[in-house]
């Protein structure tokens, strides 16, 4: 089976003001199969977000290759890389990143609007299907009653649930979540984590989760840790994807 995400010897370096270079990712390799959940732990500034950005094609690695669903991102023009990301990857962020003046439902529908799609993979192609999918996702995250409210009026937990629904709308093969519970209280964090894992598993998507919350990390099939720019198996050895 083709991995939904494959990183081969990925290095990401940044130039610093004094002319030196800072290596944030150092020869990282990773593969995620469909339906597999992987967590990456690490201290603040260890490179977790950079790893997710590289995996999504938001940042280009200094060296190495990134393949999404078997397609190498290297050399793809910006428009094509953007299109691939929009169709294949769902993103969940620590700070939610909802558009405040759009309603909850409009936020969920945003990926479909950007990708100019009216149908969701696996449906019959009804032009209204994407709208129906958004409504189903809102029901699944418990926000159907607030669909028409501006996003700015939601609580933190509601905002993150909206962001999860948005990330899953186009049934992406891969979900990338960057500290999805980092900005929530304990109760809200538990509810959001439950929702995230349940929906990902229901849809058979791969999940790459960056977190410094050990409890959340422990829920993943595979647990990894970033240290000094390199990726290590975290505690229990998995059968995991570290190569």
């Amino acid at each position: 089976m083709t991995p939904v995400l494959e990183l081969s010897e990925v290095t990401r370096r940044y130039s610093q003001a004094d002319g030196s270079e800072l290596t944030v990712l150092d020869s990282v390799s990773l593969a995620i199969e469909p339906g597999e959940t992987v967590s990456v732990a690490g201290r603040s500034g260890s490179g977790k977000s950079t790893l997710l950005h590289v995996a999504a094609g938001i940042e280009v690695p200094s060296e190495g290759a990134v393949r999404l669903g078997g397609r190498d991102l290297a050399g793809l023009p910006d428009a094509e890389r953007s299109r691939l990301r929009g169709r294949s990857v769902g993103l969940v962020f620590q700070f939610f990143h909802l558009v405040p003046y759009l309603t909850v439902r409009e936020n969920v529908l945003l990926p479909a609007r950007i990708a100019r799609v009216r149908e969701v993979r696996g449906t019959k192609g009804d032009p209204r299907e994407v709208d129906a999918a958004a409504d189903r996702l809102l029901a699944a995250v418990g926000l159907e009653g607030r669909a028409r409210e501006p996003a700015r009026r939601l609580s933190g937990g509601e905002m993150q649930r909206t962001a999860i629904a948005r990330a899953l709308l186009l049934r992406p093969a891969l979900l990338l979540a960057d500290e999805p519970t980092g900005n929530l209280d304990a109760r809200g964090a538990g509810a959001v984590a439950d929702l995230l894992f349940r929906l990902v598993r229901d849809r058979g998507a791969g999940l790459l989760l960056a977190t410094h919350d050990p409890e959340l990390a422990a829920r993943a099939d595979t647990r990894l840790r970033l240290r000094g720019g390199r990726l290590f198996a975290d505690e229990r050895p998995p059968s995991s994807g570290v190569r």
């Binding site: 938001i58 910006d78 953007s82 299109r83 990301r85 929009g86 945003l110 990708a115």
Partner: peptide, 9 residues
């Protein structure tokens, strides 16, 4: 965000 969600330039 739009760029992350797939919007091109």
């Amino acid at each position: 965000l739009n760029r992350a969600l797939g919007a091109d330039r």
